[in-house]
Design a protein around this nucleic acid. Sequence first.
DNA 1: ATAGGGTTAG
Length: 670
Amino acid sequence: MQMVKLVHASKQTLRFDFLVTGIFVHRRISIPKLAGSYREQEPLPSSIYVPYSQLQLRKLLELQVISFLHGCTNINQIKQVHALLFRKDLHQCCYVVTKLIRMLTKLEVQMDSYPRLVFRQVKHPNPFLWTALIRGYALQGPFSESVRLYNCMRKEGIGPVSFTFSALFKACGSVLDVTLGTQIHAQTIWIGGFASDLYVGNTMIDMYIKCGLLDYGRKVFDEMTERDVISWTELIVAYARTGDMKSAGDLFDGLPMKDMVAWTAMVTGYAQNAMPRKALEVFEQMQDAGIEVDEVTLVGVISACAQLGASKYANWIRNIAENSKFRPANNVVVGSALIDMYSKCGNVEDAYKVFERMEERNVFSYSSMIVGFAMHGRAHAAIELFFEMLKTDTKPNHVTFIGVLTACSHAGMVDKGRQLFATMEKCYGVSPNVDHYACMVDLLGRAGLFEEALQLVETMPMEPNGGVWGALLGASNIHGNPDVAEIAASHLFEFEPDSIGNYILLSNTYASAGRWSDVSRVRKLMREKKLKKNPGCSWVEAKKGVIHEFFAGDMTHPESSQIKKALEDLIERLKAVGYQPNLSSVPYDVTDDQKRRVLMTHSEKLALAYGLLSTDAGSTIKIMKNIRICEDCHIVMCAASKVTGRKIVVRDNMRFHHFLNGTCSCGNFW
DNA sequence: ATAGGGTTAG
């Protein structure tokens, strides 16, 4: 006679209905209390105390064992539970063994070893047990084994369940085998309507997306009879990753149950597609909608603020992070993102403050800080931090080395760079990839060691890419070496035929050598390819963090006449202390007088003049620029920092220059 | 069981 009915079981609690004089009474019992003997639970009034049926005793035992399994943190503990199964005669129970195999998978135990053995001991595996094994192979490979097991299972006459298909699609997604994926897709249709199962549909979408067939994924989505927020989010993310924020946004607008993950997907989607303002907009809408924000959301917004490069936003999001549950000091990911953001906003000091306060640091935190120092020309700080990192348990990775090598490169530390590059594999276990070679070419090229740079390109163990040739072209431009520039450009145009900057670099290199016919040849090439020069543009942060934008020769600003006057005054003061316009900074074949006039229209000079006009004396002037700062403007910035006593920070497309008291942090080497 | 995240170069 069954007088106790188990109505619900979760990890922590069991819920029973007790039959008490004709009515059912609910009771909840927590599993920890049941550990040991289930007869020794809290005593119940004798009037309602009833013996469990055999069936329920067994069910309880199963649940108890499973709760043990959930508590296991290593394989030995699981082996103990496994031994227990034999003692309690549960070793043939598919339900428990399935959980055991899942736990082994979670602990990343090799499927071929122990899990396979456990599976073989069960005489009549049910579909769930088969699936646990198939899923294990789907997660860690070899993926062909998943498929082989699936076929075995079918041959044994055992039908798949929805989990089985999920596991198989995962395997197909991992090896990008869309042919097999499509076959299995077909099977979900003809074997008992699995195609309409929500989970099967979602994993199918994921598989098609991983294989690069977004349209197929969309088709599955459109044909699904039931969808949840995960189906939508999968597609939104896929559109965002291909850069199609329009489709992502349309989907998101139509999503009836927007949750935190879906909102976050939109925020990071905009951030990763270089639309930081849209990202902030969505983040604000998200907060207005009363949606909770977590660390992933924060990281997306932080990345957007890094792109905006303005202290105003940087401090704003930092405050939000500090007041959240994910404080940068306690959260490595948020902390590392903030380090990167502050570095990109021109604020290495704040970046380092965040770094210092972090309780835990990983390779991201160190690398971000090292790259930050490198960007700001603080080569010694970068290298010092690198050696400090080596003293910890944190191992450097390829990005860390990109950081130290660029640090050496921007500071002209050729020997140090060569030495680090030579030992990176032997001493630190990071084998140089093509990007590290590009750094070395940059390092040697900037130092004017063209022969060595070319030799490195010829002997490198992999094919040089656009980055390598680009570094060589950039160095040729700095040193005015049109012969090497020609070599670099001829290769570079194969990789990046439409990148305008490369043509301009080549043309400028010819110009600096006075080879005007070559200049017009390149100009003609650019016209034929219909490439437009992207105009030089600068931003400056005025009072209250308001950003003002200036193009070269731009007179549309409402205060243009004052700006022009301020610039003229400044230049007069600089001339008084010996400033001479650097005419070779103008790559056009025009008269010196015209060159002087062109130089005065450069956008960073306008930005500087406006900065002087609009900010308080004593505050730092922060200028951002979309292309490389020119020689003449660099000289002006140096001199202006001395004459005006202001600190000036300029971010060009590559790095930061800190001008103070007449000198630049780059040491005139950039 | 399926969904969102941080560092990279000329």
